[in-house]
Simulated scan of single mutants.
Amino acid sequence: MDELRTPRLLLRRWRDEDREPFARMNADPEVMEHFVAPLTRAESDALAGAIEAGFARDGFGLWVVDVVETGTFAGFTGLARPSFDAAFTPAVEVGWRLAREAWGRGYATEAARAAAGYGFGAAGLEEIVSFTAVANARSRAVMERLGMTHDPRDDFDHPLVPEGHRLRRHVLYRLRCADRT
């Protein structure tokens, strides 16, 4: 699927011109507060390439989010397979990252709802997960607005976060197709 639309947003495949605003977003310490570190330009470009490879492999991925009214790059939202082993993998995650200028407008929830709808519809998924560092209240609120449920017994130490790091402990939320309202 190349694109999804909501009333205010266009979720679309990546273009070369997206790499610059993507790199700015990934270098922003506030945006990356709940990640081990902001990304360099090279790391950001590599992530964009990995995202595109995900579309080729899975038929879905993390779409660029544009604000329809302005055509502005707002970040990304979509579906991805976690690249690490954990008790809940293999799985498909709904994830998002928005530029600071796009915060507080409900874009993450709107875009994630569209991505999950695609996952349960065209992609035929039975369950979608989402996870974040325990302290990431904003993302946890999005997960809850999506109707995802959290069982503390599912929480885990993220294997790609160094031991002893303040962000190592993560919460896991789940949404099952059968439980959607």
Rank of each mutant, 00 (worst) to 15 (best):
S83R: 14
F131G: 04
V31E: 00
A42Y: 02
E43D: 14
E30V: 15
G78D: 01
G164S: 06
D16T: 12
Y118H: 14
E126A: 15
H158Q: 09
D157G: 13
E110M: 02
Y107G: 01
F84V: 03
W103F: 05
A48L: 09
A50V: 03
R5H: 14
G104E: 05
A46L: 11
E163W: 14
A56N: 11
Y107H: 09
A80I: 09
Y173F: 12
A108V: 08
G124A: 04
F76S: 04
P159M: 03
G49R: 03
A133N: 04
R166N: 05
G95C: 12
A122P: 14
A111Y: 03
W103R: 06
W96R: 05
R153S: 15
A46E: 13
H170C: 09
G78E: 02
T6A: 06
N136E: 13
A80N: 06
H158P: 10
A133M: 07
V94A: 10
T70S: 13
E17G: 07
R100I: 02
G78H: 01
H158C: 07
A114S: 06
P90Y: 06
R180D: 06
E110D: 03
R57T: 13
T89I: 04
A133T: 07
S44N: 04
F84D: 02
P82A: 00
L160R: 15
T70L: 05
G121Y: 09
R5L: 13
Y118A: 11
L125H: 09
R13H: 13
P152S: 02
A53R: 15
L47A: 14
G75R: 00
R168L: 06
A46P: 10
D155T: 09
A102Q: 00
M148K: 04
L9Q: 01
V65M: 02
A137H: 15
I51R: 07
L4G: 00
V68C: 13
